[in-house]
Design a binder for these strands. Structure first.
Lengths: 234, 234
DNA sequence: CCGTTGCAACTTGCATGGAAGCTGGTAATC
DNA sequence: GATTACCAGCTTCCATGCAAGTTGCAACGG
């Protein structure tokens, strides 16, 4: 039949296994708070709900534990991890360091890629400004997320991307919750534009500094907010 | 009998399961190059060697894959990952960002802890200088490792510690290999002392900058070395 | 009424078996 | 000789069974 191998020299595009399904489903459920933090689920129950046996659920749970989203308690079940303000401080420290580095890398790209990256970032920034003008908070959050994801992805460091993805998964619920508490959306857009400008001008240290300061300010406005509201677990 | 619970309010000190054993054993084997990169092992074989069934080995393999040390190829076996110079660049980028942040954090600690941390770091620096004087390369490597581990641990950020641990596991083999290629041991000791001094003086930005530049220099001397030697996979 | 003990139900840890998929070599064909 | 088809043996994937550990509650004794 002519073409036996459709497309796979050695790259690893393989159809998802049941373990992958379980992993994705559980991760999504945690993101959406279908599994609330503190909830203790049994593998059997999840397996039943997903229509598979305990084994793939168990293996997915191991991966989620590695991601810091759950804790597998021996012979007691799967505990959905809560996020405390202290965790947010840790998370922000990592973000501050890595996003600064990413911005510097992007600013150091050769001209064509650099300008394409800047344009992509600018598109997200525009979307944020528009959402802000329209008072559309969810859209603002989505555009903000897109901006930061693009910034990290354009840096072209797979490990950095992966770490940031993990960290973002951990803090997603907290971000959703605090989105409506914020009153400083203007500042974000302005700061984003500063980062973009520095990248356009191939100003590595400047991009680093602006990205860093942007996240530092975000942390310094967010953490007191969490403490004021007495949010111990998110 | 009076005190029924010896010591466990809720903390999770539990005896290692077979999965933990398998994980530790495989990780060690990879570190020591008992499993060379590129080697393709079967779960059955490893299980046999460790005297357990396939299940715990399989689950440990999943964790190792999450750590980026192996790749589990569906229905083909466990592939020990090799490290290419490009990977080292990625790894150094992450280290540069995170260790700078860690140093800044340590410099920002309250006085007593800060000075204790500085002393601990100084002890490692002394050991390095001594090893260098004695021409004892392995001891030098060990002390260097201790210095950087202490720096990260004293920052008191669990996530940061974990990420650095993972990254170090990935690059351990490469570091061992390149240890004897280096000719710039003096510089390291001097730079370490600069970091320590900045921490002693609670100079956060200074500590950040020195830690950063130390790792940047290490990267810039190491990467050309790897390329010159044509080391494609380590 | 309160503290203790024992049990029953439930949980996961791990072993094992059947099934499906991949690989490499061999034989058949052009 | 080169190419294709195929098959045997290997591998993991997943379901399931059994054993061991944990929990909550009921019954009991003070």
């Amino acid at each position: 039949m002519a073409r036996a191998k459709p497309a796979r020299p050695d790259a690893g595009e393989r159809r998802p296994s049941l373990v992958d399904d379980a992993y994705a489903a559980m991760k999504l459920a945690i993101r959406n708070s279908d599994f609330a933090p503190g909830y203790q689920a049994s593998e059997q129950e999840i397996a039943l709900r997903l229509g598979m046996s305990r084994t793939p659920v168990h293996e997915a749970a191991i991966r989620l534990q590695e991601d810091g989203l759950v804790r597998v308690l021996p012979r007691r079940g799967i505990l959905i991890c809560a996020i405390a303000p202290e965790d947010m401080r840790e998370i922000y420290d990592v973000i501050i360091a890595l996003e600064g580095q990413a911005a510097e890398r992007v600013a150091g790209l050769p001209e064509p890629e650099r300008l394409r990256a800047a344009d992509a970032l600018a598109a997200h920034a525009e979307a944020m400004a528009a959402a802000q003008a329209a008072g559309d908070l969810p859209a603002w959050g989505l555009a903000d997320e897109g901006f930061h994801r693009t910034l990290v992805e354009e840096a072209g460091n797979g490990r950095l991307i992966r770490i940031m993805q993990t960290i973002n998964d951990q803090s997603h619920r907290a971000r959703m919750l605090t989105l409506r508490l914020r009153r400083e959306l203007d500042a974000s857009v302005t700061e984003h534009r500063r980062i973009i400008d520095a990248i356009r001008e191939a100003d590595g240290p400047g991009a680093h500094r602006h990205a860093r300061e942007h996240r530092i300010r975000a942390r310094d406005t967010l953490l007191p907010l969490l403490n004021d509201f007495g949010l111990r677990h998110l």
